[in-house]
Design a protein around this nucleic acid. Structure first.
Length: 429
RNA sequence: GGAGAAGUCGCCUAGUUGGUCGAGGGCGCACGAUUGGAAAUCGUGUAACCGGUAAAACGGUUCGAGAGUUCGAAUCUCUCCUUCUCCGCCA
């Protein structure tokens, strides 16, 4: 969400930004919102004047009553009553205009960083970095669910009976691997100075509407029946929600948090053939990082954040690349974003395992996350978030890249302490 | 889940027969005076948001949130949220 004042003063910048994102149909919204804003300010001024008058006259009524001047008091009451209809009309107009304005402001995209490559869609995303050899071994790599099954590690049939499609039982070594990855990722981030958090897994509706758009909410969030509660789709929801309406002290910045939570998603919409198994599911677990910082520091943190994910995958012997979202593929709220992709030797391509975003002050403006500077001045914080790991999807990359010809799976050194010291997992069948 | 009490400006607190209360006092904080420096003392200032202005002045909104009664609500009514105490129930 942009600052309305900024838009008012820089309509051309906002329009060019819309063009850069290939959303030309939104161009008329800029002038529309400027006109609405002018109208709103005008009616606010009128209404304020009426309210000021009402307040003044009401006070004189008190004085008259105290002195027992009944007739004068009644006359003043009549005077207020005369204005009340006009005031009510203006107030209705004010709220209506305000609603229209916010609705549009929610749709107008955030100004992208100058460094973001211009492009129409994800086909024009730009690779910024690549680590590790994308090896294709000389034996066939089975589909990830089949690899898991050789360890008796996955039971989708029972999951379907118990909860339906999109759920899973992880068993034995695979389940242990899942927990090991999460624990390792947690400690990895703690070692890098992040504060470990376990947030609420359910949040109220006002937090939901604060952290996401209505469309996102419909497509993602599970509602608890009979309660004003939703299951979180990512710990970002409760972690950012933590700061809603807060004024934080500048000396406490930056907040560098790493949170664990299960994530619940409806995943409404079409699923492709590559999304069988545990790639796209209704429930998964995620170690996340969230940063709330000063505006001037957000780009520095952005680079650090995605680098953390790259380093973690590297430490598990998984080749990765970083792909920058071009202007057209960048979500409206984001200033800049990269996807971290892991190598799939089976598909012979990279696939998304994490996404790192700098929201600038857009999220903070929506949620009123402010910083009180050491000079007493207040300003909006910048917010960022990034995936550390999200198994079981992450396990796909892990299993494919550490698989041996004999079906065994190497346990990278870093993970061994979390796997009872095992160097290798041996298939059960 | 049941019963009771309460939620005021960073913190503590005054304010309930509705009327100069957006709000008094204390602490804290900031600045200034005093001091060789500090403590203590004294003085001044100290909520957020919107509009307005070159900047001010000024106007509006907000006393947990929302709605209502009223010319007027921190004060009355309703709903919700939160906290505390007691009981119940659990991990």
């Amino acid at each position: 969400m942009l600052d309305l004042r900024f838009l008012r003063e820089n309509p051309e910048i906002v329009k060019q930004n819309i063009r850069n994102k290939f959303q030309d149909s939104k161009l008329p919204l800029v002038d529309e919102v400027i006109a609405l804003d002018e109208e709103k300010r005008k009616s606010q001024q009128e209404a304020d004047a009426l309210r000021a008058n009402k307040n003044k006259v009401s006070k004189t009524i008190g004085m008259y009553m105290a002195k027992g001047m009944k007739a004068e008091a009644e006359a003043a009451k009549k005077q207020v009553a005369e204005n009340s209809a006009a005031l009510a009309a203006l107030e209705a107009k004010e709220t209506e205009l305000e609603e229209k304005i916010t609705k549009i402001m929610m749709i107008i995209p955030n100004i992208i960083d100058p460094s973001v490559p211009i492009g129409k869609d994800d086909s024009e995303n730009v690779e910024v970095q690549r680590y590790g050899e994308p090896v294709v071994p000389d034996f066939d790599i089975p589909y990830h669910s089949e690899i898991m099954e050789t360890f008796n590690g996955l039971d989708l049939d029972s999951a379907r009976r118990v909860a339906g499609n999109g759920f899973y039982y992880l068993m034995g070594d695979i389940a242990r691997l899942h927990s090991a990855v999460i624990s390792y990722a947690r400690d990895f981030m703690i070692d890098r100075g992040f504060t470990y958090c376990i947030p609420p897994y359910m949040i109220r509706s006002n937090v939901v509407t604060g952290v996401m758009s209505f469309a996102e909410m419909e497509a993602m969030m599970y509602k608890i029946e009979g309660e004003d509660l939703y299951l979180i789709g990512t710990s970002e929801h409760s972690m950012i929600g933590k700061f809603i309406d807060q004024i934080v002290e500048e000396k406490n910045l930056p907040y560098t948090l790493t949170s664990y939570s299960p994530c619940f998603r409806k995943e409404k919409g079409a699923h492709g053939i590559e999304e069988r198994g545990v790639y796209r599911i209704h429930q998964f677990e995620k170690q996340e990082m969230v940063v709330v910082c000063k505006p001037e520091d957000s780009m520095m943190w952005f680079d650090k954040l995605w680098q953390n994910t790259v380093d973690l995958f590297r430490s598990l012997d998984i080749p990765v690349r970083t792909l920058e979202c071009c202007s057209g593929d960048l979500a409206d709220l984001k200033v800049k974003s990269v996807d971290v992709e892991a190598w799939s030797p089976r598909q012979k391509k990279y696939f998304e395992v994490g996404s790192c975003s700098n929201l600038g002050d857009a999220q903070a403006r929506r949620l009123k996350i402010r910083v009180k500077g050491t000079d007493g001045k207040k300003y909006l914080a910048h917010t960022l978030n990034n995936t550390v790991v999200a198994p079981p999807r992450m396990l796909i990359a892990f299993l494919e890249n550490n698989l041996n010809a004999d079906g065994s799976v190497n346990v990278p050194v870093a993970l061994r302490p979390y796997m009872g010291g095992k160097e290798k997992l041996i298939p059960k069948q």
